[in-house]
Amino acid sequence: MQKANHPDSKKGRGAPSNRTSLRFNLPDREWDGDWMDGCQVHDGGAPQLRTTVTEEHPKSILSFNTSPDLPFDRSVNAYRGCEHGCIYCYARPSHAFHDLSPGLDFESRLFAKPDAAKLLRKTLSKPGYRPAPIAIGTNTDPYQPIERTYRITRQILEVMAETRHPIVITTKSAKVTDDIALLADLAKDQLTGVALSVTTLDAKLARILEPRASTPMKRLDAVRDLADAGIYVHVNIAPIIPAITDHEIESIVAAAAVHGARSISWIPIRLPHEVAPLFRNWLDMHFPDRADKVMRIIHDLRGGKDNDPAFFSRMLGVGAWADLIRSRIRIAKAKHALDNSKWNIRSDLFVPPNCDGQLSLF
Rank of each mutant, 00 (worst) to 15 (best):
P239M: 05
H42R: 13
L124K: 02
A135H: 10
P268G: 11
G304Y: 13
L283S: 07
T66P: 00
Y150Q: 12
S108V: 13
F311E: 12
L62T: 12
F312T: 11
V53F: 14
R296F: 00
R151K: 15
T153E: 08
R109S: 10
H84R: 01
T123I: 14
K333D: 03
C89M: 04
L120K: 08
S17Y: 14
A222W: 06
P47V: 10
V253K: 04
R154W: 03
K10Y: 01
D99T: 04
A332H: 07
R80W: 11
C89H: 02
M217S: 08
A276L: 03
R330F: 12
C89I: 04
S125R: 07
L70D: 01
R314E: 13
R270I: 02
T171H: 02
G317C: 07
D185R: 07
I325K: 01
P145M: 13
L220N: 04
M160Q: 10
E56W: 06
H95V: 03
Q155S: 15
F24W: 13
T52E: 09
I87R: 01
V168S: 10
C82N: 02
Q144L: 09
Q144Y: 11
K342R: 13
R19C: 06
P272V: 03
S265R: 00
V235F: 01
D178Y: 06
L120W: 15
T153F: 12
L209Y: 15
I152R: 02
K113Y: 11
F311C: 05
K122H: 11
P309V: 04
Q48Y: 07
